[in-house]
Amino acid sequence: MTAQEADRTHTASNSPSAEAAQQFVQFAIESGVLRFGEFTTKAGRLSPYFFNAGLFNDGQKLLTLAQFYANAIVRSGIEFDVIFGPAYKGIVLAAAVSMELARLGRPAPYAYNRKEAKDHGEGGMLVGAPLKGRVLIVDDVISAGTAVREAMAIIRSAGATPHALAIALDRQEMATENGQDVPHSAVQLVQDQLGLQVCAIANLSAILGYLSHSSTSDDSAASQLEQYHGKVQAYRERYGV
């Protein structure tokens, strides 16, 4: 399965394409990246699902992931000049997405940061293309917006403009501030308070839709997923936005 097959439309939208989102959820499950069970989140919540983008860990998975990202970015209609990948997961994402966009005829340079400044050779905190103009940040998921703020500070210090954010999954749940739940998600915070456009490949609604569809199938793997639909739905009812 490729993202080109999942979605060939280029309609401007910051909401995930329903078909592409469903196929991305399937891809993430098959890759072992999206798992179901009991997991403790950074906010201390007991979540019935866990998304670990670090498990897109071979060439084929990374290629397919980049295709999903690139199609979501193109479909969103977001305009930008440079891609920025925050260390560490964002580094490989930025490189892979830049390559896939080039293959689609939409070339864009990319850069990333080091966690610690290099004190020899070219030195500095940044690697890759110069950060200038409108910058698209590429990351996996965001939970509180802290990493986005850090990336924005790096971009601004280089004289460029943080403009947009592309992520794999929007959890669509309440963020936490000072240990307290707040009535907006991390994505909403990034959009409304930090002023960035956001596009996501998939979201929690897509996960629920996929699990709901699985409940109608006789496939043994699908029937195993069915048991988690109610748990994910209950989690969304409690923490969703």
Rank of each mutant, 00 (worst) to 15 (best):
191 Q>W: 00
231 K>A: 12
142 I>S: 08
8 R>S: 13
212 S>I: 02
26 Q>V: 08
98 S>L: 01
142 I>Q: 13
229 H>N: 10
165 L>A: 00
175 A>R: 13
50 F>W: 04
119 D>Q: 06
5 E>F: 15
119 D>I: 01
36 F>Q: 13
206 A>W: 08
70 A>W: 05
102 A>E: 14
182 V>I: 13
134 R>V: 06
229 H>S: 06
192 D>Q: 15
73 I>G: 07
89 K>M: 12
15 S>N: 04
6 A>F: 07
171 R>A: 07
203 N>I: 01
231 K>V: 06
78 I>G: 04
80 F>A: 02
135 V>C: 03
143 S>V: 15
197 Q>I: 11
170 D>W: 06
213 H>R: 13
11 T>V: 12
41 T>L: 04
33 V>R: 15
35 R>P: 05
4 Q>A: 07
14 N>P: 03
61 K>E: 11
25 V>T: 09
168 A>D: 07
120 H>Y: 13
37 G>P: 15
231 K>C: 03
122 E>S: 13
35 R>D: 14
3 A>P: 00
42 K>L: 05
229 H>V: 06
153 A>T: 10
79 E>W: 01
101 L>T: 03
21 A>R: 02
9 T>K: 09
217 S>V: 00
85 G>L: 12
21 A>K: 05
122 E>Q: 15
235 Y>H: 10
65 L>D: 07
159 G>M: 04
21 A>Q: 07
87 A>M: 01
